[in-house]
Nucleic acid binder design. Structure first.
Lengths: 212, 212
DNA sequence: GTCCGCGTCATTCGAAAGATTGAATCTGCG
DNA sequence: CGCAGATTCAATCTTTCGAATGACGCGGAC
């Protein structure tokens, strides 16, 4: 029996997933979480085989709440970590790669057909990585060929810059010093060949490195 | 018995909605549609009381396929039109107002609690507009007070800001003094409720005021 | 083992951006 | 006509940004 934890802030999505897995005889949804924090807590307090983790929690969150990437990192850092499958709306999401490197076993699009979903869960439960085939290629293609190799951290910083945050805010969000943010920005600027944050955002958008 | 049509391209979301309404004794999901076209067809071929219509179909399609707004317009233009409830992920979506003007009876956020959802469906089936209370206010606030005017000149300036240009460059481009550019920016900031050029660009993009 | 890229931080300094205040035209509207 | 808004400009002043460094630990590559 595969024990599942659903981590998504949308009640409707959770209901859909629950209904979907209820039809599978070898799967059981043992818990749900509406926030990333709750997902981490719950997973620590009970045995879970696979976590279905949304990437965007409370989409319009300027401040501090954990996101799916953070929760994934926290989960995979624990002892006896569950397998984490990332659920996301957009396959252009820049955080996918971060999540995978944080320890996720794979990623799924929310508009994937149900059969694909259950197959991915089964694969994850078996310890397989759902990233073997073309998926990994697409990821690396998107993030390494599309733009001139912005590092993970740099991409994260750039995403927050594009959201309109100041260096200080970004530092707070990513738990960095403002100096570090500036340092990342210097590298971003040189790599993109620009000289200001706004033009960096423009260039990145034009290169497809940021969600259109 | 309220006859429902679910129009959403996400199988998971449809499953969730189906499960949700299955628990309501006076509601029945009589059909589902994975595309906007299918929604229009289906609704014409069978009697439907309420349509739950997603706004984004096949998220990453710039051109061709119909979107929820178009389908809503088509549905409401027919004879004996069903009541249309808009389903959307983001309450910042610029298309919400368009959909309402196309004839939708209300709009719902996908992260709304289930009770709110069924209540809205019941209200829509009864012919009420779910836009009466604070929702309409928020809509008009967002689209008529929050974003509205941005004069021509201000839009021009904002476009160049979004392109990554400095105040001096913008002044040169538009044959203005740098002081004038700053002045325009102050007005843009107040109108958009932000405090920096990058967040102004982010906000404008989110409001649909910029689409290069 | 050494070199290099990444990520982290610090300091300093000049430039740009933003806040504030004020004011001049010109337009459209009641 | 007066009023409101758009557009234009100016002079401050503070904050933020960006540029130029230098430094340290860490992991992979050679």
């Amino acid at each position: 029996m595969i024990r599942l934890l659903l981590a998504d802030d949308h009640p409707v999505v959770r209901a859909g997933l629950r209904a979907l897995f209820a039809a599978e005889p070898d799967m059981e949804v043992v818990a749900e979480a509406a926030t990333a924090e709750a997902a981490v807590d719950t997973s620590r307090n009970m045995r879970v085989d696979v976590v279905l983790m949304d990437l965007q929690f409370g989409k319009a969150d300027p401040d501090g709440s954990l996101q799916g990437v953070d929760a994934t990192r926290a989960l995979c850092a624990g002892d006896q970590p569950p397998h984490v499958l990332i659920l996301t709306n957009y396959d252009t999401d820049a955080d996918i790669l971060s999540a995978v490197e944080a320890g996720a076993s794979g990623y799924l699009l929310k508009d994937a057909p149900p059969t694909e979903l259950v197959a991915a869960v089964r694969a994850a439960a078996a310890g397989e990585s759902a990233l073997a085939p073309a998926v990994a290629d697409r990821l690396t293609t998107r993030t390494h060929a599309n733009n001139p190799s912005l590092s993970l951290r740099e991409s994260e910083v750039l995403a927050l810059v594009a959201a309109g945050m100041s260096n200080r805010d970004i530092g707070g969000q990513l738990f960095l010093s403002e100096a570090t943010v500036k340092s990342h920005l210097v590298h971003i600027f040189t790599k993109l060949g620009v000289g200001s944050r706004t033009s960096a955002v423009a260039k990145a958008r034009e290169l497809g490195a940021i969600r259109p």
